[in-house]
Design a protein around this nucleic acid. Structure first.
Length: 333
DNA sequence: TACCCGTGGCG
DNA sequence: TCGCCAAGGGT
């Protein structure tokens, strides 16, 4: 059986060398830093979405040394619009740890890498295999799908522990770079969630599901997504917006957003309320119902609050981490 | 363990 | 239109 796994593993390596996506920006001039940034960006985020963000990020912070001086806000700004903002916060925390505890050199051992915030078993494994060419298994959505089809467990779902065992058995110790990139490329381009192109798959002779992949029936039941209501007051002058840093540990944590009603109540009567925007923002598991009152102020004013707030000039808003719908709204004003 | 965290694309 | 999914991690 192990021989069978090694055979499959080698086929993935050979396939990657011919058909892999070698042109992806994080596969050129590889450094541990670049692999780290790309792996974090790619968590639950499609390659096509990541590419422009990765290029911009690397332009601003090409090395660990360059990012070591960056502020949290500067890093959040680079992340603005990409989503799952805790990842950006964790990049800030991790680069501080590397600066303080690792002499600003990316750590080399698996356990050290795993200890960094935002890096779990799979990302740590990917960094070891891709940056240090030291074989470690990974387990992401692609690998899970490939494994599931390969061994075809049918009705019985594969448990997390067994996924990891199979991923480790498959791992090619001679060329862990090509294998690791290859199994992800295979999942992304051939062994796709719907309509996999089995006739082009290097594993079609080994795969228990080849040419007979079952498509999950759609769940017709309309599941009720939990609603989050936000009532925000967007106040602006001719040249600037009043935003507050959201320190709540929930959605849009550490991004800059308009004030909520309670904080602003005593100031609103002196402003001109001229518009209300109702925005329904779809998240994966939630619906965000935004009610945004828009006010014009003749000039910037101070506010009694312990929150961190700023009047941000219109041409400086790109220097702050701001949620997508808020950014869109401000651009329209 | 199940749930939380964003956004965009796709059928 | 809407549910699902995408190089997951943290709690």
């Amino acid at each position: 059986m192990n021989k069978q796994f090694q055979n499959i593993s080698q086929q993935i390596v050979d396939w990657y060398k011919k058909y892999g996506r070698h042109e992806l920006p994080w596969r050129r001039n590889i450094t541990p830093y670049k692999i780290w940034i790309s792996e974090i960006m790619l968590q639950q985020t499609q390659v096509k979405t990541v590419i422009p963000y990765f290029k911009n990020f690397l332009k601003k912070y090409p090395t660990l040394r360059k990012i070591s001086q960056a502020s949290e806000d500067e890093i959040m700004a680079q992340w603005s619009g990409l989503g799952f903002y805790r990842r950006a916060r964790n990049i800030f925390l991790t680069k501080e740890i590397i600066k303080n505890d690792f002499n600003n050199i990316f750590p080399k051992t698996y356990n050290e890498i795993l200890s960094l915030p935002g890096i779990g078993k799979s990302t740590a494994g990917a960094i070891m295999s891709l940056a240090y060419l030291t074989p470690r298994p990974i387990l992401d959505g692609n690998v899970k799908r490939v494994i599931t089809r390969l061994v075809n467990k049918g009705i019985k779902p594969i448990k997390e522990k067994e996924f990891w065992q199979i991923s480790e058995k498959l791992l090619n110790t001679k060329d862990c770079f090509s294998f690791t990139q290859g199994i992800m490329d295979l999942g992304a381009t051939i062994c796709t969630p719907t309509n996999p192109t089995c006739n082009q798959c290097p594993l079609k002779l080994n795969c228990q599901s080849a040419f007979k992949v079952k498509i999950k029936p759609k769940n017709k039941k309309r599941s009720i997504k939990r609603l989050i209501e936000m009532n925000l007051q967007l106040i602006h002058t001719e040249k600037s917006f009043l935003l507050v840093k959201n320190e709540e540990d929930s959605i849009w944590s550490r991004l800059w957003i308009p004030f909520n009603r309670a904080t602003m109540d005593s100031y609103l009567n002196r402003l001109t309320h001229y518009k209300n925007e109702q925005i329904s923002h779809q998240l994966t598991h939630r619906v965000l119902d935004l009610s945004i009152n828009i006010y014009k102020s003749e000039k910037e004013f101070k506010i009694q609050t312990n929150k961190k707030y700023k009047w941000i000039k219109k041409d400086k808003i790109k220097e702050y981490g701001i949620p997508k719908p808020i950014n869109k709204l401000m651009n329209e004003l």
